[in-house]
Write a protein that binds this DNA or RNA. Structure first.
Lengths: 180, 180
DNA sequence: ATGGCCATGTAACGTGTTACATGATTTC
DNA sequence: GAAATCATGTAACACGTTACATGGCCAT
């Protein structure tokens, strides 16, 4: 149930077209809730149908840009949803399944994959740190920031924390497997 | 594409019925790849159809236990899949979407939800630590363990690492929001 | 023999993924 | 004005979720 709310959030930050939304889902918002352009167009159609967003023009739309903005009902819906008690999603990591498969098979060496994934996670960590440096200088530790800035930074900090933890874990796991 | 392989892995560890598989997905395997019993039965039917697993009896199956075991083709399929290069899944966390929504709405206080989730993550961390203490005493740091043990422990260690990182992040985020 | 529980399964729907199609705009 | 590119969209399917149904087993 998060995709429509991620879209509403992004449109509240700044109204835009579907393609622009899709681009944003390649970064920022998409770092925590990914979506393809097909999903986004489908969801925008639903949101429009439900009266939660409105497009600049409702004409024949093939090829022509449509600019979306959030309606009051959309804002209220987002507010209600944000306040609901929600259970954390169970974790889902293919690499963990593969490691357990390797454990039971006994014939599969995943150290190469581990190294490859480490490079990807390190790159993502660098992206996050770059964003923090550029967009949130002095937020970490310092005080005197408004709530919106603190919240946005908290989300970014979560990404940094996860990637760093992943890398630390992978170093350990690799060292243990190499020692063997 | 992980569910069938998670099932094959679990059945290789020990052949069992669909219901027993569903129970295992409530813990152990399911900590990293969750599934409901409906998904499991559907997937078992596909795996059987594809000749990757075999059931003890193929008779009218309503109400009667069916015991599944992995066939050689299933083992080979799992091996091939494990060795494939796979991209890490993009992260997906509803709470992060909600935090960004709160940032743009300005009228939503998520500190209560943060505290509630912290309790859940702390409980999960305790579960992992308990398992580590019971099933992998002396693995952390020590040497002289076989590859299978090291791999299984690595998966558990990932869970511990993630939950600990989540909690550390949440403490920081909460402190920053309270300071404000 | 009935009531409750357990294992297996169906159905319907929502979400996510992949491949492809169409109209507009730009560029040469 | 043909080719390339961009924005929007369709279609089909795989995966995940929720609600419910059926047959067997067990305890009373």
């Amino acid at each position: 149930m998060s995709l429509p709310h991620a879209i509403l959030t992004s449109l509240l930050e700044k109204p835009c077209s579907g393609a622009e939304l899709a681009r944003r889902f390649e970064k920022s918002i998409g770092y925590f809730w990914s979506a393809t352009h097909q999903q986004i167009y489908r969801e925008l159609a639903k949101l429009e149908e439900a009266g939660l967003v409105a497009a600049s023009d409702r004409e024949s739309t093939r090829g022509r840009q449509r600019h979306f903005a959030v309606l009051p009902a959309g804002r209220e819906g987002l507010e209600r949803w944000s306040l609901q008690e929600q259970a954390p999603r169970p974790m889902r990591d293919e690499l963990m399944v593969r490691l357990r498969a390797a454990a039971v098979l006994g014939t599969v060496d995943l150290r190469g994959e581990l190294v490859r994934h480490m490079a990807l996670h390190r790159a993502q960590l660098d992206v996050y740190r770059e964003i923090e440096h550029k967009d949130f200088p002095g937020v970490r530790g310092g005080s005197g920031h408004d709530a919106s800035t603190l919240l946005q930074h908290a989300v970014l900090a979560a990404g940094i924390s996860f990637e760093a933890a992943w890398l630390a874990w992978a170093e350990d796991a690799l060292a243990a497997l190499d020692r063997n």
